[in-house]
Amino acid sequence: MNKELEHSFVEQLQKHQNIVHKVCRLYTNNQDAHNDLFQEITIQLWRAYPKFRGDSKFSTWMYRVGLNTAITLYRKRKRSIKTTEFENVQFKIKADEYDDTEDQQLNLLYQAVQQLNDIEKALVFLYLEDKDYREISGTLGISEVNARVKMNRVKKKLRTILNP
């Protein structure tokens, strides 16, 4: 692949790298894993780039490849770290009372999201990124109605995690 293509790709990715970081934030829970997933998503984006035609926005296209990589393709998992951190999270939520302070609440919310499964996280991610149900259903390959139903279930699940 020629240098020009590489240059334009790097330039665009640099500009929109926050999207990749956000995917990594949801699907990993330590800095090493975050960097590792960032690396893998970058490779997958670059591989798919020749097929990227300007008919959709670069950022929209990134959501798809990024989520697909995080949910389906990514293999390197640091299991031991994941399980211990996961246990800590559960312990913490049970131990702490729901606090009024905004930061505390946000912290608990992020921890609760970490406990969702891969598909639920994808729904949350797209929701947080302000995507409508048409785009959510298109990205995941489910119907719009089912995306809506699932989203409501995810919200309910989050509430249960936060108020056991």
Partner: peptide, 22 residues
């Protein structure tokens, strides 16, 4: 929420690293 911002010259070598996809 601030993430570490990679520069162009940090991203470019990433493209040629080995993938570990399934």
């Amino acid at each position: 929420s601030s993430y570490r911002e990679y520069t162009d010259s940090e991203i470019a070598p990433m493209l040629h690293k080995k993938s570990s996809s399934i």
